[in-house]
Lab assay of single mutants.
Amino acid sequence: MATADDFKLIRDIHSTGGRRQVFGSREQKPFEDLVDLGWLKRSSVDSRATHYQITERGTSAAL
């Protein structure tokens, strides 16, 4: 179930172009929650960072 923080984060991601790069596993937790909701997808993972991209469902949630 989505929380107020989830909606705040997806709106922030949407307003800044729909993509986010995250460093460190602790910082990934809120983004992984949005992946579980179907609002974000992991577009790539490298040794230092994970890249996320907003989905259509995420765009709808952000509006």
Rank of each mutant, 00 (worst) to 15 (best):
F31W: 04
A49S: 15
G17M: 05
G24K: 09
V35W: 03
R57A: 15
S15T: 10
R57K: 15
E27K: 10
E56Y: 07
H51Y: 13
S43T: 15
S25T: 13
I10M: 03
L37M: 07
E56R: 08
R48P: 07
Q53C: 09
E32G: 05
E27F: 09
I54Y: 00
T50C: 07
S43I: 15
D46R: 07
R20L: 10
F7E: 04
S44G: 10
L63F: 06
R11D: 03
K29D: 05
F7P: 01
G18E: 02
S60T: 12
D12T: 07
K41I: 15
V22F: 04
A2D: 03
W39P: 00
G18C: 04
S60H: 14
A61D: 02
A49V: 13
R42L: 09
L9T: 03
K41G: 06
A61N: 04
R19P: 03
K29Y: 05
Y52P: 01
A49K: 08
R57D: 12
G24E: 09
A61K: 04
S25F: 08
V45R: 10
S60A: 15
R20H: 06
A2H: 05
L9M: 05
D6T: 04
D12F: 10
T55H: 01
G38H: 04
Q21V: 15
Q28D: 05
G24Q: 08
W39T: 00
S15K: 12
K8A: 12
L37C: 03
R19Y: 14
F31V: 02
K41F: 14
D5V: 06
P30K: 08
E27M: 09
L40A: 03
L37D: 01
A2L: 04
Q28E: 06
S43N: 10
S43Q: 12
R48S: 13
G17L: 04
D46S: 11
G24F: 08
V45F: 09
I54S: 02
M1F: 12
V35G: 01
T50P: 05
F31G: 00
S44K: 13
K29Q: 11
A4S: 11
K8H: 09
V35I: 07
H14N: 06
W39F: 03
A2V: 06
T3A: 05
S25L: 07
D5I: 06
G17D: 06
A62G: 03
Q53F: 09
V22D: 03
T59D: 04
R11E: 06
Q21H: 11
S44A: 13
M1R: 12
I54V: 04
T55G: 01
A62H: 02
T50N: 07
R48E: 15
D46V: 06
D33M: 13
S44Y: 15
E56D: 12
D12I: 10
D46C: 10
S25P: 12
K41Y: 13
G38L: 04
T3K: 08
R26H: 15
S60M: 14
G38D: 04
R42V: 15
F31I: 03
M1D: 10
E32N: 08
A2G: 11
L34I: 02
L40H: 00
K41W: 11
T50D: 04
R42Y: 06
V35R: 03
L63E: 08
G58V: 01
Q28S: 09
R48G: 14
W39M: 02
R20F: 08
D12K: 09
R57P: 06
R19T: 13
T3V: 05
Q21C: 15
E56S: 10
E27C: 15
I10R: 01
A49G: 15
Y52C: 01
L37E: 02
F23T: 14
K29A: 09
M1L: 12
Y52V: 01
A4W: 11
D36L: 14
R57H: 09
V45N: 08
S60K: 14
R19M: 12
R19S: 14
D46G: 09
A4T: 10
E56A: 12
R11H: 08
A2R: 04
F31E: 02
G38M: 04
A62K: 00
A62S: 04
F23M: 14
G17Q: 06
K8I: 12
L63Q: 08
R19N: 11
S25G: 10
L37K: 05
L37S: 02
D33H: 15
A62I: 04
S15M: 13
K8M: 10
H51A: 10
R42W: 04
A61G: 02
K8E: 10
K29G: 08
A49N: 08
A49L: 10
Q21W: 15
Y52D: 01
R48N: 14
L40C: 03
A61Q: 05
S43F: 12
S43W: 10
R11G: 05
A61R: 03
F23N: 12
H14W: 13
K8G: 06
D12R: 08
R57I: 13
H51T: 15
T16S: 12
L34S: 01
L37Y: 05
D6S: 07
T50R: 08
Q21I: 15
W39R: 00
I10Q: 00
R20Q: 05
V45W: 10
G24H: 14
K29H: 06
R26Y: 14
E56G: 07
E32K: 08
L63I: 11
K8S: 08
A2F: 06
D33V: 15
E32Y: 04
M1T: 12
Y52I: 01
A49Y: 12
M1G: 12
S15G: 09
S44V: 12
E27S: 11
